[in-house]
Design a protein around this nucleic acid. Structure first.
Lengths: 345, 345
DNA sequence: TCTCGTTTCGTAAACGCTTACGTCGCAGTC
DNA sequence: GACTGCGACGTAAGCGTTTACGAAACGAGA
């Protein structure tokens, strides 16, 4: 009848007509719902394939009330940590017919805007926050969305989360230096990117001091410096430590990138690693091997993957048994730790 | 009337009722369409804010026919190159009320699946392919989607694209070595990840050979090795070059990561850089500075950003003036290039 | 043969918007 | 004072699905 149909793609009605059945039957056949004979279902599926017809997700969502989409909110896709998380999430979601909607909130004001406008609003069934510290106020705004919220790489109240034990990671890193015989051990820790405190620096520092104290070693304030958590932070932090009247013989870096920077400073200063100075990182960055860096591995991609799977399970089964996952970290010995200078091996 | 409303979130009808106007007016007021007095518009907007009401994107899409979403298809989010591209795309799309739907196609078969099932089908208004080589057949499948397609980091027939000149990048890298006086210059080039040929390796190699020939230097087959384009490719490639009866004195790496690997091999082999061996990369990876690596910078994030802006413009204005953008590359001199050994400075 | 339960399918009412079109009121024109 | 034009708003028809409900057909049990 209608000669001027706007629809460029064919719709379910067209398909139904050609198949000689009603729209309802087509819908049931394609969605796998019961109430259709196997024969009819096969016929319809074949026809749909032939005409390369695909159900409109938007219309389906409208009718059903769920979007089949999950939002991932991350501070910086270009940074390897978040990128690896994202990669893991996508992997964990693969084959679940859940699509990923990506939101990047780089700056403080973007984050604020995100929570005040909630652009993911009514777009997704769930939200995965990637290591994003948020305020109580923002947490409350989040509830407005009325969707499942999962935190990857941190915690968020009672919401499901996947993370590592940062205190333990700090302990493992520090313990290697202690075991090697070092007594003057420093830490280049991270400052937060945000006004809100992010948990990792504090936790890793607790691990650091804990191990020192248990070993009967003093924690000297001048040996704990704070810098940005990128490689340049390591460059600066190491410089500061080297300029000390009595520099340390071993350094725990907040992250591998910080360690990379520290190593560059040492190389330029002509300080031999590990003969004069030992360095240990945390992360097991995929380039750590290129620096020969001894470190503590955290399974970043795996965290993302589990987060993705968690979301899928929750969306499917409603609730879920263990929504709080802590993945283990593990020492990776390479070449940047040796005995302190002056100690014979 | 309907006592059991399913809707958890309030809808436009609720808002209209409270505002004492019709749904149509609310729609017009909120979307910025003409035909509403400024006073009414303000009133409605205020009310919407108060009740923290948001228009359902799916319903809007259904009614309007466009989704406000763009799909980004990338081989590997966790790799810095694609991550930087993605970051750029998101940045370029910021403030355009276009959302990003992310698809990762890591393996050959995932790529095939993506093109055969087209999960982005009817979900997005445009598609951005990130440095993804595709076959003619797949290109045809893509047209089935009937949406704008943009290639970032490569070309794709007549479709709009953003990229760099890889031949020129190869030339710039090689020219530095030639200028420093090297005559035995090698290249660690990349093998493709896919069965389909990706353009960059071939183009960079052409730049390499072109410069050598213009300088009157011979291109020796044994000095061009092929490895995977990650750091381990560099490790292996450099080993092979070192094992040659007469090793080169300068090496052009396909990418910075390859160069990182090469540097590690050299360090372990006790070959001094740049005194005995010079190395140059391509990319300007954000860790290149940590290796002191001389390289050729390509603006990765910028490419993504332009691609995002391109999509936005095309979606808005229909067509567009210059849909083919080539961004310039540029030498970044650091510390891994010196004169060949035996040449007095 | 009648009734009842199953299966299979169609009918039609949502889902929450956008927009073409119609209506109304009012100022301006002759 | 009837007519015209225009701005502001309402009516209602979609957009392409899902799904509650009802109808029809059919076999089984009595």
């Amino acid at each position: 009848m209608a000669v001027t149909k706007r629809a460029v793609a064919l719709n379910m009605a067209d398909l139904a007509e050609r198949a000689g059945v009603s729209i309802a039957t087509v819908s049931r056949a394609l969605s796998g719902a019961p109430g259709v004979s196997e024969e009819t279902r096969r016929k319809i599926r074949l026809l749909a394939d032939d005409l390369s017809y695909a159900v409109s997700p938007d219309a389906a969502r409208l009718a059903r009330g769920s979007s089949g989409r999950v939002a991932v909110v991350t501070p910086d896709v270009s940074h390897w940590f978040y990128a690896a998380m994202l990669d893991g999430i996508v992997t964990g979601l693969r084959g679940t017919d859940l699509d990923v909607l990506l939101y990047e909130v780089k700056q403080e004001r973007e984050r604020r805007r995100f929570f005040s406008e909630l652009p993911a609003r009514r777009q997704v069934d769930a939200l995965i926050l990637v290591a994003l510290p948020i305020s109580d106020d923002e947490r409350r705004r989040l509830d407005l969305m009325g969707v499942t919220v999962v935190m990857a790489g941190g915690t968020l109240g009672d919401h499901p989360h996947v993370r590592i034990d940062d205190v333990e990671a700090g302990r493992q890193a520090t313990a290697q230096l202690v075991r090697a015989g070092h007594t003057r051990i420093a830490m280049i820790n991270s400052t937060g990117t945000w006004s809100l405190e992010y948990a990792a620096p504090g936790a890793r520092l607790r691990g650091f001091t804990g191990v020192l104290e248990e070993a009967g070693l003093e924690v000297r304030p001048e040996l704990v410096v704070h810098r940005h958590w990128g490689s340049h932070g390591g460059v600066e932090g190491m410089s500061e430590l080297l300029s000390l009247p009595e520099p340390p013989t071993g350094v725990v870096a907040f992250s591998d990138e910080v360690a990379f920077g520290a190593l560059r400073t040492l190389r330029r200063a002509g300080v031999a690693v590990p003969y004069t100075m030992s360095v240990v990182g945390i992360d097991d960055h995929h380039l750590a091997d290129m620096f020969d860096l001894t470190t503590v591995r955290q399974p970043v991609t795996q965290q993302g993957k589990v987060a993705g799977q968690l979301v899928h399970q929750i969306l499917q089964k409603g609730d879920i048994r263990s929504p709080h996952v802590t993945l283990p970290t593990q020492v990776v010995a390479r070449g940047t730790i040796g005995p302190p200078p002056g100690v014979r091996t």
